[in-house]
Design a protein around this nucleic acid. Structure first.
Lengths: 213, 213
DNA sequence: ACCTGAACACCGTTCAAGT
DNA sequence: ACCTGAACACCGTTCAAGT
């Protein structure tokens, strides 16, 4: 009610929310985390990340209360990129080719480091905006647009939910991660895409007589 | 050369290799492990398993030097069952239906507890008989026979490796595990099976002119 | 021969003291 | 306001002592 409002507090406040050394430590941590996660996977030692960044473990926890907060920051740039790529591909002439390319890109970045696929899939499927992937909802939305466009163009069947397509791409990334064979992901995605192109199985079979009641 | 051979040593030796209390403790551990793994997943506390079995933690380690050894023992029965089921289904009239049913069963037992899909996939794909799943090779072999039969009957395309089909089924189980939605696994498997039924994508497209050299 | 549980090692997390 | 690292908690693993 009586709280005062300074004239230019609306946008300027977010620009320098922290001390210069704090900002620097934060950047060092994210850079170190990217290296260590890539080397050792998403369950790498946080102590090691702090050591490589040259800061105390307490500083890491101050900036990133949970492991997921740190992972989320590492993913931030590439998340923005994949969303931008989806918008770009919406303008491409072939809806099917656009979808295929985007799913390929999604797989590539989901496999950035070991353990990430597992961590992310829950977020794509769920509705809650988690700490691990604040952009996951936006990624799903962006991918959905590409799927719907391909469906409306009649290039893929329309009885499959867009979210399921994205989850299937994640499964492909997971296969690559597990088997250590990147081409396995490509083969799996190709199989799923062929399934998407196909006439649904229940339509190719003889029509079952409708059940009474 | 000079080693004596007792008259009936050939099969009897394996029957009582350990003391009665040791045997009992072993059984208690496997039973407790099954319960705890089901409740808490494949990374459940080993100390808790020992406690529930009513034995010291040292006894658990004596019988099962690694976590994988314990998991393997828990899976033993169902592994034998899925292999038997494959042989049974090889005699079923419809190769495609037989394959579908077997993959469904495989997914069901791969999702027995959280974290198992991940642990097993490496074994299906790899060649080494690991501690975690000594039967994985046999399961792959059994599944391969079902895939090959469906291919030879012309019910599914023959340019897909049988091992890839099994890995795809594992991916379906993984999706169910991650999203907590069992029907997601069914939908995903259905999509893959439609892909398997489909004419390969490169044959449905206009034939590309063969590249020179 | 087998069992037990204290002891050790490791890592994630917190928090009192310092700047 | 932020940083530091010792301290605490937790869990996996080993091994000397016991039966």
């Amino acid at each position: 009610m009586t709280s005062p409002t300074s004239p230019n507090s609306q946008g300027a406040a977010a620009d320098r929310p922290q001390r210069a050394d704090a900002r620097r430590n934060r950047d060092l941590l994210v850079a170190a985390a990217e290296v260590v996660f890539t080397e050792q996977g998403a369950d790498a030692s946080l102590e090691e990340i702090a050591r490589r960044a040259g800061v105390g473990i307490g500083t890491l926890y101050r900036h990133f209360p949970t492991r997921d907060d740190l992972i989320a920051q590492v993913l931030d740039d590439s998340n923005a990129a994949i969303i931008a790529r989806a918008k770009e591909l919406l303008g491409a002439p072939s809806p099917m080719l656009a979808l295929t390319r985007w799913l390929d890109a999604l797989i590539g970045q989901t496999a950035r480091f070991r353990g990430l696929t597992q961590a992310l899939t829950v977020n794509y499927a769920g509705t809650t905006g988690s700490r691990l992937c604040s952009a996951c909802g936006a990624i799903t939305t962006a991918g959905t647009a590409l799927v719907v466009r391909a469906q409306q163009a009649g290039e893929i069947r329309d009885d499959v939910a867009p979210a399921d397509v994205i989850v299937s791409a994640n499964a492909a990334a997971w296969i690559a991660e597990q088997t250590g064979d990147a081409s396995a992901a490509t083969r799996h995605l190709a199989l799923v895409l062929d399934g998407l192109r196909a006439t649904p199985a229940h339509r190719t079979r003889r029509v079952k007589p409708a059940r009474t009641r």
